[in-house]
Design a protein around this nucleic acid. Structure first.
Lengths: 226, 226
DNA sequence: TCTGTCAATGACCCTCGGTCATTTTCGCGC
DNA sequence: GCGCGAAAATGACCGAGGGTCATTGACAGA
């Protein structure tokens, strides 16, 4: 399957490459259309037929690129998530030496600005995992996630003296719960949203960045105090 | 529909009452069997046919008591949730006067001890709301929820001088996000669970009560400092 | 015993995720 | 430009599971 070095394969390569490019482009197209649907409505409401239609493809074709609905969602989440990991890594890599917990907290919160689609999908992750995601799919996702957690976590450990080996990843998992919770409070669940906008209750406007910074600072202070 | 005061209705009452009792008992039976299934597996894996079978009823019968799968879940959540509200209200009502934020935090955390089924269902709530819950169902749930939020929230406002009108309910919504987040970290999502138990990462044992107390104390301190 | 009411039943329907035999596209050699 | 073979695309079809409804059964009251 993978291109090897024979003369035959080499001659065929340009065309193969062109085809692969097309495939990759179509894959991205599907992901993009799916993202539009997922951010507009709920997970259950997004039908694979809709994704296909918006991508101007037949339903069966979508399944050539993504084996299941869950796989499509996970691929989408992975793309956004890993782009964010890169962004965070970039921020953490500028400069050197130890940082205060508060600075790390601010940096992380900053990295999440303008990442609404990502945080929205993160809030949906639980929903997807509650479906019948096959272990194989979850395993693949998990492995790639762990790699990123390890890489980004190591950067965190460099910046914070009190973090032991592997604890950077642990911190990022806390972060996941925090972001999901904040997003949930802010605008995800229909009932919650209605509740939040109730007239006789002071509106619960969530300043995402500020609240996240505070929560992370507290968390890091706690870890440091151990 | 509601029993009125005519002679005819009064004569019929004993039998009517008996029947209603039977109905109520059967309703509780279904809820109980459903709870067993929901806590054992994920939301999607619980089939209405299974609930019926475990309740020794035909599938159609279950739908006489709960119009949809979502309604069954919400009814179950409501039952557990409102029992917890009552417990919390009892704890908040003992004694009088102002309390410190920390004491309130401890009390709330204490009220949640032994409420695994509830916290588990709360973590599933997002999943259910992502299904096609009809607005009517969500509205009914919302109204009853708001009533409880107002009642319990008012008790909180009595205990904490710095809480304005309606902010007790706001605090309880924060609580929801915190509990869900903690539960999520502790053991809900399959992938997360696997990740948490990874050998090369320090195990993330969550002391539910302690962490919740701390988080709530921080939150209340922040509200007081405004 | 007859009758009217209401609960219970399970065969049936519909939607939607997922499959696969068939058709279409396209690079290539002649 | 014309077949040829392989890969991609298609959409009719399948099965699972939530939800429905005409029929059956149980039972209180006359």
């Amino acid at each position: 399957m993978v291109s090897n070095g024979t003369a035959k394969a080499k001659r065929a390569l340009p065309l193969r490459a062109r085809r692969d490019e097309d495939k990759e482009a179509r894959r991205r197209l599907i992901l993009q259309e799916a993202l539009g649907l997922y951010t507009a409505t709920s997970y259950a409401e997004v039908k694979m037929a809709d994704v296909a239609e918006r991508s101007r493809l037949a339903k069966g074709t979508v399944f050539l690129y993504f084996p299941t609905k869950e796989a499509l969602f996970l691929a989408l989440l992975e793309a956004l998530l890993f782009a964010w990991f890169e962004k965070l890594e970039g921020l953490l890599s500028s400069g050197a030496g130890r940082w205060t917990g508060e600075r790390v907290a601010r940096t992380v919160a900053e990295s999440l600005e303008g990442q609404e689609p990502l945080t929205r999908l993160l809030a949906l992750l639980q929903t997807v995992l509650e479906q019948n995601v096959t272990p194989a799919q979850a395993r693949g996702f998990k492995e790639r996630l762990l790699e990123a957690l390890g890489r980004t976590g190591a950067l965190l450990e460099e910046r914070l003296a009190f973090l032991g080996p592997g604890e950077g990843g642990r911190f990022l998992l806390h972060l996941h719960a925090l972001v999901t919770g904040l997003r949930q409070m802010a605008d995800v669940a229909p009932v919650t949203r209605e509740v939040l906008e109730l007239p006789h209750m002071a509106p619960l406007r969530v300043d995402f960045t500020r609240e996240l910074t505070e929560a992370l600072t507290t968390l890091l202070r706690g870890l440091e105090a151990r």
